[in-house]
């Protein structure tokens, strides 16, 4: 081997090439094993649900499941809307609307929380932003929602007012298909 000084270089090159090739292959092969943990096609297919709210009178609410989480659709009374509008922005713990259908920086005004053009309709994911419990309807000192786990209190627009939760209840993407039919997701 001593008389052919090119040999070690070639050997090193081949070993490095083989090593690099192997690493790339293993990395590529790893992807299916990671991606399989993502939601499967049947779960993704249910990512949109359609709800008929024709029968929901003012002061009533229905709760449906969307992506395994409860989504509440509330037909708010005039009083509730008034209370929501009366709150000053500086009194809010979380000043952002948290509305997937609005701008990410939108203020948490009552109008930005309610459905566009239908100020009485409030659609939101009923999962406490503290640690994921389900808040109770029509309870708490602000007349909205109250989370029994750690005492977070939300107002009539689902905004956090008191307690450990950091954010307003999130509003999922949705659209009105007809006047009384909502598609969530």
């Amino acid at each position: 081997m001593a008389e052919t000084p090119a040999e070690p270089t070639r050997r090193d090159f081949l070993l490095h090439a083989a090593g690099a090739f192997g690493v790339v292959g293993v990395a590529a092969a790893a992807w299916p094993f990671i991606d399989q943990m993502n939601p499967d096609a049947s779960t993704r297919a249910l990512a949109a649900v359609e709800v008929d709210i024709a029968g929901v009178e003012p002061g009533q609410a229905i709760t449906i499941m969307w992506r395994g989480k409860p989504v509440v659709i509330r037909n708010r009374t005039e009083k509730e809307v008034e209370e929501g509008k009366a709150v000053k922005l500086e009194d809010l713990k979380d000043p952002l609307a948290r509305n997937a259908n609005a701008d990410a920086n939108a203020d948490a005004t009552d109008a930005n929380r309610a459905a566009a053009g239908k100020e009485n309709i409030l659609v939101m994911t009923k999962v406490c932003t503290h640690l994921g419990c389900i808040p109770l309807d029509e309870s708490g000192e602000f007349g909205g929602w109250f989370c029994p786990c750690h005492g977070s209190v939300y107002d009539t627009a689902g905004r956090i007012r008191k307690g450990p939760a950091p954010e307003n209840l999130p509003i999922p993407p949705y659209a009105f298909l007809t006047d009384t039919k909502i598609r969530i997701g």
Partner: peptide, 13 residues
């Protein structure tokens, strides 16, 4: 069959 049809890469695995 859910693995074969719906799980990401399930058919392969």
């Amino acid at each position: 069959e859910g693995i074969m049809r719906d799980v990401n890469w399930g058919w392969l695995i």
